[in-house]
Simulated assay, not measured.
Amino acid sequence: MLDIVIEARMAQISEGFAVKRILPYQLRRMIGPFIFMDHGGPLNIPIESIRSLDVLPHPHIGLSTVSYLFSGMVTHRDSLGVEQIITPGEVNWMTAGKGIVHSERFEDPVMLAGGKLEMIQTWVALPEKEEESDPSFTNYKPTQLPVFTDKGVWMRLIAGDAYGLTSEVKTHSPLFYVHVELDQGAHFGLPVGHSERGAYIVRGSLEVNGIIYKSGQLLVFTKGIDPLLIAKEQSTVMMLGGEHLGERFIWWNFVSSKKERIEQAKEDWKQGRIILPPMDNQEFVPLPEDKSKPAGGPSPNHLS
C-alpha cells in the first residue's frame, strides 16, 4: 500500500531560517512532476532577528516554484519586475523556464514578532518542451481556488484536478496539489486518476491500514491503491502528485532534463549573465561551491 515513507530533514535556507526538507529524497526524487518540497515554520521571530530570515535574490531554471502560506506574510520580488506580497491561502506560481531570479523577504515586523510564519514551497518540474519557455509569475487569490467541505473535512484545491474539481491555477502537466484540514476521526481518501500520489502530514497524525503516521512524514502510495486516511487528531495534510515527466537533474536551484543545461546555468549565474530583480538588486546569493554533479542532487546550500 505504501511505496515509501519519507521523513523530513532539517535544511538551512538563510542565516536564520531552517526548514523541513521533504523532497528530493535519495530513494524517491519526485512524486509526479513535484521535485522539491520544503516546510518552513511555524516560527515566532523577535524583531531584531527578522532580517536573518530573508532569502536573497537567487536564480532558477526549468521549473515552477509554488509558494503557499498557512500563516504570516512574504514579499516576493523577481527579475520580471514583479513585487508581490503573499498572504495565507494565496498561491504564488512562478515559472522559471529559461531563467528567472527572485527574492523572498520577510518585511512585516509586527506579524513576525507577534504571530507566526508557516509556509510550504514546492517545485514542479516542467515538461521538456517547456523547459526553455519565457519566465512568468502569477498570484492567485483564495477566492480563485475551489473549496470543498464535508463533515470534519475542509479542502482547498491549490492546483490541478482532484475530487471532480479543477483549479484555475495554470499548470504545464497533469497534477494535483491539495490542502486538507481534518477533524479528529474524519476519514479522507486520495484523489483517483493520478499515477503518483503522496500525502505530507503538516501537523497532527493519520492512521493508514492500522498504522499511525505523524507530522513531518510524507506518505507515498503504491499505484492503483486507494487507502483510507483517518485523522487521529486535528490534522493538516498536503496531498500532491500527478504524472511522471521522466528523469530530471537537480543542482542548487536548477532543474533540467539535461546535465549540460545545468552547467550552463551555473556559469551564467557565476558570470552575472542572469539579471537581478530591479527592486532588489543590491545583494544576491553567490553560486555555492560545486561539490556534486547534477545527478547527485541538491547541495547543502539549496535555496527556495
Rank of each mutant, 00 (worst) to 15 (best):
R29F: 03
G16N: 08
P24Y: 01
A8N: 05
P33M: 09
P33E: 11
I45G: 14
G41F: 15
P46F: 10
I22C: 07
M37P: 02
E15Y: 10
Q12W: 12
A18V: 06
G16K: 11
P24Q: 04
Y25S: 15
S14M: 06
Q12G: 06
R28T: 00
A18Y: 01
P46V: 00
Y25E: 13
M10L: 13
M10A: 12
P42A: 10
P24E: 02
S49A: 13
R28E: 05
M30K: 11
L43C: 02
I22M: 07
R9Q: 14
L27V: 00
E48H: 15
E7H: 09
I47S: 15
K20C: 03
A11I: 01
G41Q: 12
I22S: 04
P46Q: 08
P33S: 12
S52E: 10
I45M: 15
R28W: 06
A11M: 12
I13H: 02
R51I: 06
D38E: 09
A11L: 14
M30Q: 13
R51M: 02
E15H: 11
G41K: 13
A18R: 13
L43Y: 14
S49C: 09
V19A: 13
M30E: 13
N44P: 00
F34C: 06
I22D: 06
G16W: 10
R21P: 03
E7D: 12
R28C: 10
I47R: 15
Y25G: 04
A11F: 09
H39G: 03
L23M: 11
F36C: 00
S49M: 13
D38T: 00
G16V: 05
I35K: 04
E15F: 07
M30R: 12
G41R: 13
I13D: 04
M30S: 12
